[in-house]
């Protein structure tokens, strides 16, 4: 029983054919705030993401991009405002939180692979323990994911034996193994050497093509221009501007956006 590539992800590529405005909201944030002590890291952000949409979040460092994205799967707790993920409201209800976490996968800047487990075990751990997948099925799933990210031959290696780009691809495969509806990327290529950035971005591009909803914090403007449906500019905890890449790059509404783009392009 082989699992086809499309079946390894819940979403389907057809959703890309529906225009954005006709799709339903999969993430809704209304007036969300977060403070660390006196410092306001996320300041009244209202934003929604459509199903199957790719949103790139960019902006200067310390602008609250990572904090915001980590609130979507409750790695950070929002103190004010409302967050709804795939119709489930994020409250203190444990059941809600568990349900949300199952829907959302995350890829970290530092990969965070489990060093004491092999690549295979890294990928199959959660499906076996959380979704109670039998071992054989989990292994098949893992292998097909590894093929998909392009490194099936590394299955029995340990993370320390892989290059940075390979590790990050394993991390993506690991997150995908839980069949999430949404994938969060927190600066996935910032810790990589330049020659390995491309291989990871390729995987992300391909993932976008399958209709996965993706929220990426990144500095890779080339990737943003090509793949993103919308780009969101954050500065000092506020959502400054959110619009299509064309609009952002050629004709940004806000001066801050232009300022930042001038600095990095």
């Amino acid at each position: 029983m082989t699992t086809s590539l499309e079946e390894t992800t819940v979403t389907n590529p057809d959703i890309r054919k529906i225009p954005l405005e006709d799709r339903d909201d999969i993430i809704v944030c209304e007036n969300v705030y977060k403070w660390f002590g006196d410092f306001c890291a996320v300041n009244d952000v209202t934003m929604s993401v459509k199903r199957g949409e790719v949103v790139v979040i960019f902006g200067p460092s310390g602008s609250g991009k990572s904090t915001f994205i980590r609130m979507i799967n409750r790695l950070e707790e929002h103190q004010q405002g409302k967050i709804v993920v795939d119709g489930i409201e994020m409250t203190n209800d444990l059941r809600n939180l568990d349900a949300i976490r199952r829907e959302v996968g995350m890829v970290f800047q530092q990969f965070n692979l489990f060093p004491h487990l092999s690549v295979m075990s890294n990928i199959t751990l959660a499906p076996q323990r959380v979704r109670h997948l039998p071992k054989a099925e989990a292994d098949e799933l893992a292998m097909s994911l590894l093929e998909r990210v392009g490194i099936p031959e590394q299955a029995e290696k340990y993370p320390a034996e892989l290059s940075g780009g390979q590790q990050q691809r394993v991390a993506i495969a690991r997150a995908l193994a839980m069949q999430p509806e949404i994938m969060l990327f927190d600066e996935p290529t910032s810790a990589l050497d330049p020659e390995m950035i491309k291989e990871v971005l390729d995987v992300m591009r391909e993932l976008a093509d399958t209709g996965m909803t993706m929220l990426c914090v990144t500095h890779e403007m080339g990737f943003a221009r090509e793949v993103a449906d919308r780009m969101a500019m954050f500065d000092e905890g506020q959502l400054v501007e959110i619009d299509t890449p064309d609009h952002i790059f050629t004709n940004p509404t806000e001066a801050r956006t232009q300022l930042f783009l001038d600095q990095i392009l």
Partner: peptide, 17 residues
């Protein structure tokens, strides 16, 4: 590393697991 806990949580593993 704190990132290990975060990765485990994001995968849906509960505290025990």
């Amino acid at each position: 590393n704190r990132g290990q806990t975060e990765a485990a949580r994001s995968l849906g593993l509960n505290t025990n697991n």
